[in-house]
Structure formats: structure tokens, C-alpha cells
Design a binder for these strands. Structure first.
Lengths: 242, 242
DNA sequence: CCCTCATATAGACATTTGTTAAACTGACGA
DNA sequence: TCGTCAGTTTAACAAATGTCTATATGAGGG
């Protein structure tokens, strides 16, 4: 969740952030990086691929958030004693790690970067609110459309989207878990949207044939993603340092 | 969202927090305190009553979060440029205000309290995740049960719940908006749960006849509410000051 | 090359939920 | 006291979604 904050950083902070990430790891199969209830000693930065936050209850898995490259996946796990959900990789994934001791050090010595870390968690919360709205407001096709539109925009923010396609390695089961429906109904939904000429999946990518219609179906706004220049306090506090 | 953090504070910080709140206001009718898109100059502390975060889209209102006394309602609005949703009062409500300028001052001079403010927003995010799960996992009766169980526990945290009842001034329409269903279906659900001897509403309160059955129906865990002693970083950073 | 497994697809049916329309209740002000 | 209005309740029907069962497809391993 740091990717979209880069433009708020000074060069020295970008260097600091780079230094925070170490111990790069690669996963090619679905892997649970951190489990619910674990007390993590480090936070995870997603470098390439996708990561889901998920909770399994009554035998069913639910995906409550998806991360794209550039995101700090479990920054909040650094402050809250134990994580309330699992962190699992999707597809081919590369992650870096930051020991919490390093973050504590940053909080002591780098107040401005500390605020950016805070803002990163606030952006997470804004994404959560949009997911709540998506689930309350839309039915299955709208939810799928919304998920695709959101991921395309977020990937586009970090330069990883094509004009009418982007990576989408989620299986239909995972799409269902993220939309609060069943795999079978998700299959119905995918088929209907494909036949309607809206989207198409192939080899881990999604082709978006009609972005406008997709966004309309999803009632997708995008303002909640908070693009550049939307950070308020960053400006207010900037004066203190300048 | 500060209520449950009080036990993490030192006396001086409690005083500081008290000082932050000023300009107390009382509302007896539903009032929109802040609107989506507004750039707020102050944050709102809920002192008594209830407040909902809501978004109206396509003529339908959706509630994406409910606050209880002791919560800092829009702390995030202090960092994000504009709020992504409305803040509306429910029933009889008393709020206090804190100018953002005061919060900026706190961030500069009170690092420990600043962290607690951060944690408060992280607890909000944890609540959001539980709402996502509730919407993905449960159908209407489970969602209502979950909402009631959550609010009872949160009110209990701040000493405002009776053993088998608590305030619940939401109308059935509002309950529906918070559970992602229609008012009519919510009415069906309320009736079924009343006939099942689970709950009963009367005069702005809900009686919980069978808390265990209610929690089971809601698959309610409660761990996500993060009771006392669950803050991790607070301890880690404490050593730095001691 | 075939086997095996995860994934995708499909049909039939049950259940939940949405929609529309209408009536009922209680609080409150004219 | 009588309307008025927000909130609640009910019924009948339509649409969306879940469940169960079964088959098809496609990639990877033996």
C-alpha cells in the first residue's frame, strides 16, 4: 500500500524505504505467509505478483483484500498484537521483508516517513470501506466488475496495466471468495459477462473489452483509491520541516 | 475508536486527550455532520449516542460502519484530503470536536499519543475487515445477529451494555442499510429472530434473550475487537520512553 | 504418452432475497 | 381530536443465488 505514496516522498525517504526491504523471497505455489493469530516479527512488502488476505471459517475461505505490487501487506500487523487473518500468495509472487525492529527504528528517527506509513494503513481502510460498499450494494456481476476495475486501476497506478488488460491470476474459486459468492455462481457470472462482450479471461490475464460499461456495471468511482496529491496532512506537515 | 485504548494511556495523555475535545454539540434529529467530499478542518469524537458512516448511491443509502461513545469517528479524515463518505447521527447524539490544528500539534509534540491515534485507525480497519467477512459469509439473519453482537460487545467495553440488553436506536431501515439487504427483508428477519426467542426490540433497545445462540448464528468471535493488552507496538515502544 | 488433478462448465432444483403494493401502528403537531 | 408521517408489518410474485450432481477441459507428472 506504499506504491501510491511514492510521489509524496523525498529522495532520502525513498532510499530509506528501499533499505527497509530485505530478504527477498519467491513463491511459485500458493503459500500461507502468515497465519491468523501469528505474532509476526516482520512486515511483508509485495514486490511482484498478488497476495490475498483471507479468513477460513466453517470450512469456507473468504478473501477480504487483495494486494498488488508495491503494497505493504501487513503493516498493521506491526502494531496490532496478532494478525486477524491469513496472508496467502496467489500465482507467482515475490515478496520482501522488513523486521519490525527496523520499523520501530524508523518511527523513532523519521517522523515524516512514519506519517506516510500511517497514511498507507489509512488507504487500506479506505479500500476496505469500498469493499463493504461493493458487497452491500452490488450483486454478483457488479461485484466481479468492481473487483476487476479496482485491480486494473491499482495496477495502472504502478505501471503494470495495459490499456485494456491486466494480470489476473485468480481462479474462479478465488474470485468467488473475494466476491462473497459461490464458485458455481461465479462461473455463471463470468460466462454471462464474457457472452456480453465485457471481459474475457485467458492465461492469467483479464481482457477488458469495454472499460466504460464495466465501470458502470460496478458503479465504480475510483476516488476512494486516492490518487496523487490527495494526501492532506502530508502537505500540512510539510511546512513544519521546510 | 479511542475508548478501548484508554488503558494504554498514561495519566498525562488522558488529560491531553480530554483537552483535545472541545465545542460539545447535541443533536436530537438525524443530522449529517460531514459530507462525502468535504474537506474537514476538525475531527469528531462521539461522546454519547450513535453515529453511522454512510454512502448514498443510486438513491440507496449504505451504512459502512457504526460508532459507539468513545470513538474518534473521522480521525482518518484528518490525514486523507477529503472524506469518502458521510457522517450522520443516529438518535440522540452528543459529539465533541478537535480542530485538526490541535492534532498536528499533538503529532509534533506527543509521539506516544500519536501512535495511539494511529492504532485507533488500525482498529477501525480491523472492524472494516470483520464487516467484509460478515457480508461475504453470512446471510441476512446472521448479519443482523453479528451486528447486534458486535455493538453489544463494543458498548460493553465502555460500560454501556447491560448483561442481556443494550441501546439500539437503529430503525429497521437502518439495520437493513448496515446489513446490505432491503428493509422488507430485514423486517422478515427481525420477526423470525423474535419468534425464535433470540432477540427483541423495544423503545430503542435490543433485548438479547440468548446471547450464546446469537453469537453462534453470527459466527461471532470477538477477537477482532482487540480487547485490553492486545496492542503490541505500544509495549515495544514503551521501553524507549521508560 | 497417458493419468491425474485442479479448474472450469453445465443442468436441475431448493432457498434466499428483491420487488411491488398495501395496510397497520404509534408518536406528534395542528 | 384528528390528521400526518415515519416506521413497521404482511402478502404475492419475480429474480438472484445456493446446492447437488455430473461432465469437460487442460496442464503437469509419471
Amino acid at each position: 500500500m506504499m506504491g501510491r505514496l511514492r510521489h509524496e516522498m523525498r529522495d532520502r525517504e525513498k532510499d530509506l524505504l528501499e533499505d527497509l526491504v530485505e530478504e527477498t523471497e519467491i513463491y511459485t505455489t500458493p503459500t500461507k505467509l502468515i497465519g491468523r493469530g501469528d505474532i509476526a516479527q516482520k512486515s511483508t512488502m509485495l514486490i511482484d505478483g498478488f497476495i490475498a488476505r483471507s479468513i477460513t471459517r466453517e470450512g469456507k475461505r473468504h478473501i477480504i483484500g487483495i494486494h498488488v505490487p508495491g503494497d505493504f501487506v501487513d503493516l498493521h500487523g506491526f502494531a496490532l498484537k496478532r494478525l486477524d487473518h491469513d496472508i496467502v500468495t496467489i500465482g507467482h509472487t515475490v515478496v520482501g521483508h522488513t523486521p519490525h525492529a527496523r520499523l520501530v527504528e524508523v518511527m523513532r528517527t523519521e517522523p515524516h516517513l512514519t506519517r506516510l506509513l500511517w497514511f498507507a494503513t489509512l488507504l487500506d481502510a479506505a479500500l476496505h470501506r469500498e469493499w463493504i460498499l461493493k458487497l452491500e450494494q452490488l450483486n454478483a456481476d457488479g461485484r466481479l466488475a468492481h473487483l476487476i476495475a479496482e485491480l486494473w486501476h491499482r495496477l495502472n497506478f504502478v505501471g503494470l496495466a495495459e490499456p485494456s488488460s491486466c494480470a489476473m491470476p485468480l481462479t474462479q474459486v478465488e474470485l468467488a471468495d473475494a466476491c462473497g459468492t459461490t464458485a458455481i455462481h461465479m462461473n455463471r457470472t463470468v460466462r454471462a459477462m464474457r457472452e456480453a462482450g465485457l471481459i474475457d479471461f485467458s492465461r492469467g490475464r483479464v481482457m477488458i473489452s469495454d472499460m466504460e460499461r464495466l465501470k458502470k456495471l460496478a458503479q465504480f468511482d475510483g476516488a476512494y483509491l486516492y490518487g496523487q496529491g490527495d494526501l492532506y496532512l502530508a502537505d500540512a506537515l510539510e511546512t513544519e520541516v521546510a
